[in-house]
Design a protein around this nucleic acid. Structure first.
Length: 293
DNA sequence: AACTGGTACAACCGCAGTGCG
DNA sequence: ACGCACTGCGGTTGTACCAGT
């Protein structure tokens, strides 16, 4: 189709940002706010591509960024979320205030991945290496929040596992969600067709993980409780928002999984079995009465 | 001190999704 | 319906830094 380049490459700087460039960018965004990344460099007097400015701001200059090492709690959250979401770094980052998707991605690739491999866990499937069977709960892996009898992946689907989930305050494998939800056509066709592939696609034939469906339950609940956002992109917001329909479509009576969920707080961090100190601010702010966020 | 291999992380690239005219 | 501009995401690359020899 021949798209114009995002910037005049001949007249843009590349590579590491200088302190002066950082200051210019910060000052400009302080004065004018985020957005309009394409025109921002020129307006701010930067010889940079708009994308580069955006990345620099988001990943490095944003004032709310948390610098420093990841805590063990953050490690755990990342592993758990990755087991659910796969390489959806932006979604994972959305659950870790002050952390960026890029940071988490790097951290995953340099630290956690190796840690899991050393522990004999496949970082992609979150299963024991050289094994196709689900593993028992392990205190050091993402799987510890699941009951050992609960299937860890789609090819272990056990529709009756909902009760286990209820019992343990654990979120089931998201592919379980999706299979049950897909079966009832609870969602618009767009999510079926346009969402990104599941993290473990090759072994999920027939049981595609529908990420948006699985997490979409959260805002679906949230509509009746509080305003909440999950994820950062407008696309996500929109697709998730589409799910914020009354349960007439998502009829709880026709969806055992959803029915089980309706009776519970829906925040994913709570459902993951996190302790109070690990809960997100929305959960923590309600003093035990977990809300949907 | 110099070299080398490994690691960490910032930055880039290409593509997909979305909105608008 | 279509094409384009813009934005955001995920994968990859480049490079600075560090530890070991």
């Amino acid at each position: 189709m021949g798209r114009s380049p995002c910037c005049e490459k001949a007249h843009t700087n590349k590579g590491a940002w200088t302190k002066e460039e950082d200051e210019r960018l910060i000052n400009y965004i302080r004065a004018h706010g985020e957005g309009n990344w394409r025109s921002l460099p020129k307006a701010a007097g930067l010889l940079r591509c708009g994308k580069s400015c955006r990345l620099r701001w988001i990943n490095y200059l944003r004032p709310d960024l948390k610098r420093g090492n990841f805590t063990p709690e953050e490690d755990e959250i990342i592993i758990k979320l990755h087991s659910l979401l796969g390489n959806k770094w932006s979604l994972i980052a959305g659950r870790l205030p002050g952390r960026t998707d890029n940071e988490i991605k790097n951290y995953w690739n340099t630290h956690i991945k190796r840690k899991l491999i050393n522990s004999g866990i496949d970082p992609q499937t979150h299963r024991p290496l050289n094994s196709t069977a689900p593993i028992a709960a392990s205190p050091n892996t993402c799987l510890d929040f699941r009951n050992s009898s609960t299937p860890t992946h789609s090819n272990d689907i056990n529709p009756s596992s909902t009760n286990e989930l209820t019992k343990n305050n654990c979120i089931p494998a998201t592919d379980n969600y999706s299979s049950s939800l897909d079966n009832t056509k609870c969602n618009s066709s767009t999510t079926e067709e346009s969402h990104t592939p599941p993290p473990h696609k090759e072994e999920n034939a027939g049981h595609e993980l529908d990420l948006e469906l699985s997490i979409g339950l959260l805002p679906f609940q949230s509509k009746y409780t509080q305003t909440a956002s999950f994820g950062s992109s407008s696309a996500e917001s929109k697709s998730l928002h589409d799910l914020s329909r009354p349960p007439t479509v998502a009829g709880a009576d026709t969806r055992p999984m959803a029915a089980a969920l309706v009776g519970q707080a829906m925040c994913i961090c709570w459902r993951l079995g996190f302790e109070k100190g690990q809960l997100c601010s929305n959960c923590q702010s309600c003093d035990g009465l977990y809300r949907f966020c």
